[in-house]
Design a protein around this nucleic acid. Structure first.
Lengths: 352, 352
DNA sequence: ATGAAAGCGCTAACAG
DNA sequence: CTGTTAGCGCTTTCAT
């Protein structure tokens, strides 16, 4: 079924069919009606390859993710897809998976004109390191950075105020009476990590608490790194009374390890998360965390990209509001100034 | 940068350039070398729209999901993407989100030839209900059903043996001494649900236990439905000693509700899940469940589809092995034959 | 408002 | 083994 068939049936030229679809107002009502009828009768659907070849547009958007299997991205993707769908765009997902070859592949893919624009969730431009080194990205299509800002790039950034949110959580912990607040970090070099760490320090300062490097635990946002940090904590003779985990997944892994070692949350140690993923509310205990409007973040990024794609002006930076969600994993420290006894009861952990 | 530029630079015809890329063996080594050099020099990337228009292929595969934000799919997607990537195919994801319009859109999308094949995870063909009613899908491209089999369709099915797995778990519970084993179901009509329910009945029968309809709780695989089922259970005067949840998400929601109501898992009530998602191992208590090889399922489906796409023969049905993962959420019932006391201590639940 | 005609960049037939 | 040539189906001038 080609445009010619429709044209013949409607007794007009192929140009008129094309116009009836793209710019209906430039076609007489009668011709338009006949075309529409013919389309309905034939079930004609334009061939996208031909259209793309001629118009140099693909109506496809690339979404670049560092890790598709990370729970955090699911709702964001949904938000993106919704807006894109409404505007008639399709979504291609590229899961970088830490592989340079994949990144190169998608860079070529993009350069080859298979997509009209891209949403970057991985914190850097194609071919660049996070620090902005490497080849300047000469990808000649609209780009939007989502969640992980790319400071070196002059593209719209859609994000939350990570620093303010981390500050807020730290102060919440401090105002609950905690004075030794540990920080479970994200991966070194990560933009989010940098901002959140700054926020942690801000919060400490605002609460008049000293910064203690020994209370900074290395993590990478995964459940496993939360489990590791928990094992570290369990082994210590002097423990913090609260741990601010910069992802919910780490917080859940951490709590699990603490609980297995016989420590109680929040009685013995308070735990806070970041993101408010679905499982945060049903963790045991329910996790106090920072809520990120994930779906809205996705929708907003898609909306901005669509604006760009259609030549409309777009804001350079959008920051969506976060919310402090208070649940059950944070409480006042019960034994302030009392030396914590080393746990004796220790149960093996079986993380698959 | 077009094929012509490369041809000129390599001093060959465009056809030779095209062949050097597609069928190198049909080009003389010298010509091939010159072409490759010219490509390297110019950074030429073929225009996919032109190629697609001419060859009637898109090198794109559609993956149809019922719900992108469901944790269960993430690793499967990764498996699919890996194999597809290796074979040079791109992946377009369609999140149906229960919307008939979206489904119609993607059906048209597919009919328009934007993809060479599709992997269906939603349990039915485009335009069909799950029961096989509706328009026969005349989508003229290779299709593969993954996880949710589509019995009415004559396409390859990649899945696990849901019935056998459910049977196994039920018997595991029975062999732990449980005689009142509840079943938290999936959505009515769902293929997986049907199979797992059959397996539950099989297991009951094998263990010589009677089937009690009052022990079948309605669910839909979501955390929320697990929470609901938990509230139902908490309110009962006579409770089952074990609950077989047909998804980990429900199991986690259920355990959370039970725990909040002061019931202990597994001491007061055992809970088992299905899927072995990442959070199962760090749930409190760690969840006994059925492990599904999610990544492998995805890889297998992609591999079968690629075979189909490239004209190779493919198996009609592949069943991957599951595994019973024993953790801490199942134990022998402690108070057999003792009437369970109604819980008095009840704490409010705050699901988000 | 409409039609004729020229490609978009590539691959596949066909010659040679 | 290699070049010539004819489209793939559509959109978009340029006329009318």
């Amino acid at each position: 079924m080609r445009i010619q068939d429709v044209a013949k049936l409607a007794d007009v030229s192929t140009a008129t069919v094309s116009r009836a679809l793209a710019t209906p107002e430039r076609v007489s009502p009668e011709a338009r009606a006949r075309v529409l009828e013919a389309i309905a009768k034939t079930g004609y659907v334009p061939n996208p390859a031909a259209r793309s070849l001629r118009s140099q547009k693909t109506y496809m958007v690339l979404v670049v993710l560092p890790d598709l299997s990370n729970t955090f991205f699911s709702k964001i993707l949904r938000g993106i897809e919704e807006r894109l769908f409404e505007a008639g765009y399709g979504m291609i997902i590229s899961d970088l998976d830490g592989s340079p070859e994949k990144e190169a592949h998608f860079a070529a893919f993009t350069a080859a004109g298979r997509v009209d624009g891209a949403i970057l969730l991985n914190g850097h431009l194609f071919g660049q390191t996070r620090e902005g080194e490497g080849m300047p990205a000469k990808i000649g299509i609209p780009l939007v950075a989502l969640c992980e800002a790319i400071p070196s790039a002059d593209i719209p950034q859609i994000e939350i105020d990570n620093r303010a949110a981390a500050n807020r959580m730290t102060q919440h912990l401090a105002s609950s009476g905690h004075r030794r607040i540990a920080y479970l970090s994200g991966p070194a070099g990560n933009v989010l990590e940098k901002e959140r760490f700054l926020g942690y320090r801000d919060g400490l300062k605002a609460a008049g608490l000293p910064f203690d490097p020994a209370l900074v635990l290395p993590g990478d946002y995964t459940i496993e790194s939360g489990v590791k940090a928990g094992q570290d904590l369990v082994a210590r003779s002097t423990r913090p009374t609260a741990v601010f985990c910069t992802s919910d997944e780490m917080a859940i892994g951490l709590m699990r390890t603490l609980l297995s070692a016989g420590l109680k949350v929040p009685e013995d140690i308070s735990v806070a998360g970041f993101d408010d993923i679905e499982f945060a509310a049903v963790a045991e205990p329910a996790l106090t965390t920072i809520h990120q409007p994930r779906r809205e973040l996705g929708q907003m990024a898609a909306a901005v990209l669509i604006d760009l794609l259609q030549g409309r002006p777009s804001p350079k930076r959008i920051r969506l509001e976060t919310e402090l969600i208070i649940r059950d994993s944070v409480a006042s420290p019960q034994n302030i100034e009392k030396a914590p006894a080393k746990s004796t009861r220790t149960r093996a952990i079986k993380p698959t």
